[in-house]
Design a protein around this nucleic acid. Sequence first.
DNA 1: GTTGGAATTATTGTATACAATCGTGGTGGA
DNA 2: TCCACCACGATTGTATACAATAATTCCAAC
Lengths: 249, 249
Amino acid sequence: MNDMKRIRPSEAEPRRRRGTVVPASQVGEVAGETVDLQESESLVESVVERLLEGLSAGRYAPGQRLIARDLADEFGVSRNPVREALHMLAGEGVVELLPNRGAVVRRLTVKDLSDLMELTEAICLIGVRLATGRMDEADNRRIMEERAEQIREAYRRRVAGQFVQALYDYHKALNEISGNGFVSFFYRRAHFGFFNRLLSERLPGQHWEEYIASYERIHAAIVSGNAHAATATFIGHMQWAITLLNEEP
Amino acid sequence: MNDMKRIRPSEAEPRRRRGTVVPASQVGEVAGETVDLQESESLVESVVERLLEGLSAGRYAPGQRLIARDLADEFGVSRNPVREALHMLAGEGVVELLPNRGAVVRRLTVKDLSDLMELTEAICLIGVRLATGRMDEADNRRIMEERAEQIREAYRRRVAGQFVQALYDYHKALNEISGNGFVSFFYRRAHFGFFNRLLSERLPGQHWEEYIASYERIHAAIVSGNAHAATATFIGHMQWAITLLNEEP
DNA sequence: GTTGGAATTATTGTATACAATCGTGGTGGA
DNA sequence: TCCACCACGATTGTATACAATAATTCCAAC
């Protein structure tokens, strides 16, 4: 399945682009080379992944237009899987599809981020509440200890992106443990994963100490199985973070 | 824009289908007629709409495989917009995309519905809390009174589908009023709209009286601007409804 | 200089074509 | 009778082709 034809008869010139995407090198891109896809992964999936990766890395900025042809050239595929990937991301709310105008990376205001935090709080709260009652099952406690260690590691390095990512992964694991499939499903969506990156431009900002202290308290309550303390601490933290978000310049 | 060419050279035989979809008549379907699309609506959008409509009407059952070619014939378009629509719905979580096996309508167990209710509670709670504080703005109170009347109307008729739909619309309006764009965005997604239909097969079940009474209390608290009463009543109701859902045969 | 509009280009939307893959049913042999 | 295996049909995945729409440029008129 790796050696599909992909004839591409004449084509050779990189097809001048108009100055929007300009994605800076990808892999080697040998002449006519296709995107090196994983075991039996469809092109659409790999395009989605690479788009998300590019979004996370900031190569595609919010508000930026995504030209299907350019992306197709960039990934070495035709426009078709690219369009399907864009529709998928549109379904997840990461990009907007303007009729006859193509796809645009969704733009977020601070108000949007604040709203998203409020929603995230509500969703993750379920995870915190349910998972706290399951710390004795399987190796759940160990899993969460490991995730907490990731948070501490990112804290020591003071890398906001890694920190926010570690927090995201922490709650992802928590939601998984919670047993509520929908919470897990929703939180895993590109949506939250992607927009958490935008969040890292504003959080924790200058408040590393308070942030890590909050999470140590939340984590302690969770692994000790104290659901009331866990939810209360978590709510308090999120409210503080939202305030922080809105106060920052 | 209504008279695009769409040459379709020979094609004439309806292309035998394999016995899965068989959607029962659509519009007239004049020979070679295309799906009659709204003002400047792309084919993908109209296909998404018609798929959702079919899902809501129960023409496509959970677990059912969706054959791109059959859908294309049904809607009078090519497979391409159909595939894009399916990817969009996959992004929204309504259908699953199996690699090399196509799309399947997502199947929901009672546990799934219960989990979804729990998530819905968390999301709508934000709407209830925020919107309650905005009843004096604009004509918000009138809007909610109208929505409440829709609920009462469906209650009088004892049509579960209409009832659940009216409840959905009530919260949709509430979330809109809340001012949290993400809550509104998430709740509006096909997801909730579609799966609410599955819910109507089990709720309100034999408990019309309690259900309407609960909502009268919630509604009264909301329009009176009493946020604490509104949220408390709403949480109580949802917990009861979730219990009910799990108890039913 | 600015404005209006036609020509041109860029880009999307849709359709068709074909290769790859999955499922199925038949056939031969133990 | 049952199982392995091959051939074939059905369906998806991907690419190319072309029409339709939006954006841009350029030129003339005021």
